[in-house]
Amino acid sequence: MKKRTVFFIIYMILLMLPIYWMLNMSLRTNADILGSFSLYPKNITFANYMKIFTDSSWYNGYINSIIYVTLNTMISLVAALPAAYAFSRYNFIGDKHLFFWLLTNRMAPAAVFLLPFFQLYSTFGLIDTHIAVAMAHCLFNVPLAVWILEGFMSAVPREIDETAFIDGYKFPRFFLTIFVPLIRSGIGVTAFFCFMFSWVELLLARTLTTTDAKPIAATMTRTVSATGLDWGLLAAAGILTIVPGALVIWFVRNNLAKGFAMGRV
């Protein structure tokens, strides 16, 4: 066997092991998990999954997360598309500094913004709404989206724009019918990154919500109680949080590869 294949197999094992172990735990009862060591579930039970799918406080966590994540991805893209176009096509005073400043937002830890956000959203009565979380995540996702999209847009030759203007396109029509399709893969990649960040972010999502918009990550912390940790349930919830991300990756996998090839990701 070639060296490369060996390394690849070792890498895949290390990568998949925790996920397999979570799957393993999610199919067992707590007593079984704590009682014996087993490489595979001997008495398979779906009780943990049934609880999540039947208890509204559990499945609402997923619904809430999906709602604000989708909202956030859409807002980020709508805001970042024109911004990235401006950065890639026009020179204006301080454009490079502005571009870098946007990125520094992405570098700041979320905790820094926690208190101001909480106060701000309380004042506007937005606490415990999906839009509050979606907008808070924009602080991180819009700069990221601008950064990625700018790279894709700069790869489109300027002459495309110029030909279109000589042909008589109005800007909005050009942008939607010619330009956006050209950077399709870029938009796919951007959406993926926005989705992933927003999906796994816990701190802001948890602070800005109480019940109505509570995300799944916050719900999962409920498994810790005075009687100990509900291992099986936590593992089942964990497996289910992987599913949406895996689905998104499946849909954008070709674009993602193209995006990585083009750099900037």
Binding site: E159, I160, F165, I166, G168, L182, R184
Partner: peptide, 29 residues
């Protein structure tokens, strides 16, 4: 505006719309 000057331009890098076929590229204007 460029479109009202009654001209057409051909660029060095062709500037074709890659997501459209030849017919649509020519017909779009």
């Amino acid at each position: 505006a460029p479109k009202d000057r009654g001209l057409a331009m051909v660029f060095q890098n062709y500037a074709l719309y890659p997501h459209m076929n030849v017919f649509n590229n020519m017909a779009f204007g």
